[in-house]
Design a binder for these strands. Structure first.
Lengths: 218, 218
DNA sequence: TAGCGATTGTGAAACCATTCACAAATCAGG
DNA sequence: CCTGATTTGTGAATGGTTTCACAATCGCTA
């Protein structure tokens, strides 16, 4: 497979854009495109053609000079790179507003992220059914997470409980965490952590609006 | 106020980190800190002290040499900069899983983002009550959005409907949009757009895990 | 009030990401 | 099969962000 690739360090932005390219290609395929040039792809996603080509070139040569990239094949390549050509078993911890929305979030399943386990520490929630999955007691994590071969944990508990939950899932052998709590979690070096904070994006908009009002930035 | 500041272009990363500093300061205040050094703040958020100082220096000199930054005062400064020292009227369009989670999402209200209006085009949802707000018909946007002095729109409709909804809110005079749909929206140059895609962060984790499996990256 | 230890604020240096620019490769049409 | 138009892949140049390093400043103590 890809073991002989000389990937050293790919920037976060490049990985992020791969996801964007993938979504663009999904649309292009539906529209009946067989091939797409870096120019056209860039135009659609408000990027530069050079950026598209450079990003892809880190992983191989997928295009045909004079013609562009074959849409279906490139989708296949990107899903190989991102690892979304397979299923990942996911556990979700915390069935509040955000947690229960994520259980029903179709984009996850579409890319192969299958929520297998749901945990909470609230006795009223434990045992309840969410989209066919029974909520387990958080105390059962140590047993259930290894049993279900969970690779990724999504943490949607309040900030005050998040570090403890995080320590717990790491203890269970989980190496990848998506954290929705508004705090900076501490994890060992060999655990991957990504943070998602929806309020921060609103704050960014607020910053931009505020500067607009005063005519400072543009 | 701040009209005389010579802010030209602040990078997205800096703005993002301001939000992070703000959350760290919230915690520090609770823990009883009066002042905090860039060293300590950086340690908590896994950044470098120089980065903290540089970020803040774009906006002014808030610290005291030999001592650090006054926690309360710095919180005040950052909330001024980010514009979260006031209320913003927000409209939410699309009451699916994600949309209804956001209506109850406490982090928003905490930073001054108040959801005033909720829209949907589904007759079964229109008229229903979400946290005290009655869902309006999307056809009413043109009337209600200006009436309620809405500054920010959150789009949580399916990808297929998102561009149309986006055009609609722009038409109503909204200048800032937070888009949860997994597509690249087209907006005029004077409209601020931020995208939030929760699946993309999972894909990033998936990329990291996959490379870990093959022992390529570290 | 003088001296010490600590920490900021900030130019300059180092590093990283993006864009440029062009040779190499392919397609399409005759 | 040759020629012109197109587009990739990529080393080099550019532009931007982060880190370094240190003078300037402040609190504290005696």
């Amino acid at each position: 497979m890809a073991t002989n690739r000389k990937i050293r360090k790919i920037s976060d932005s490049t990985i992020h854009r791969l996801s964007i390219y993938y979504r663009a290609l999904l649309a292009l395929e539906k529209e009946g495109y067989d091939t797409i040039s870096s120019k056209e792809l860039a135009k659609r996603e408000k990027l530069t053609p050079a950026q598209v080509r450079k990003d892809l070139s880190f992983f191989g040569s997928f295009g045909t000079r004079g013609l562009g990239y074959p849409v279906k094949q490139l989708m296949q390549e990107i899903s190989d790179i991102l690892g979304i050509n397979r299923a990942w078993n996911v556990a979700l911890i915390g069935v509040g507003n955000v947690g229960s929305a994520l259980v029903s979030y179709k984009e996850f399943a579409k890319q192969g992220f299958v929520i297998r386990l749901i945990f909470d520490n609230d006795q009223r929630k434990i045992g309840s059914n969410h989209k066919g999955i029974v909520v387990s007691d958080i105390a059962e994590m140590g047993k259930l997470i290894p049993e279900h071969n969970i690779s990724i944990a999504i943490i949607t508990v309040p900030g005050s409980a998040a570090q403890k939950v995080c320590d717990g899932v790491v203890e269970c052998g989980v190496r990848a965490i998506l954290n929705f709590a508004p705090i900076n979690l501490r994890v060992p070096d060999d655990v991957y952590l990504r943070n998602e904070n929806m309020a921060i994006e609103l704050e960014h908009l607020s910053f931009l609006l505020r500067n607009m009002e005063f005519g400072i930035a543009e």
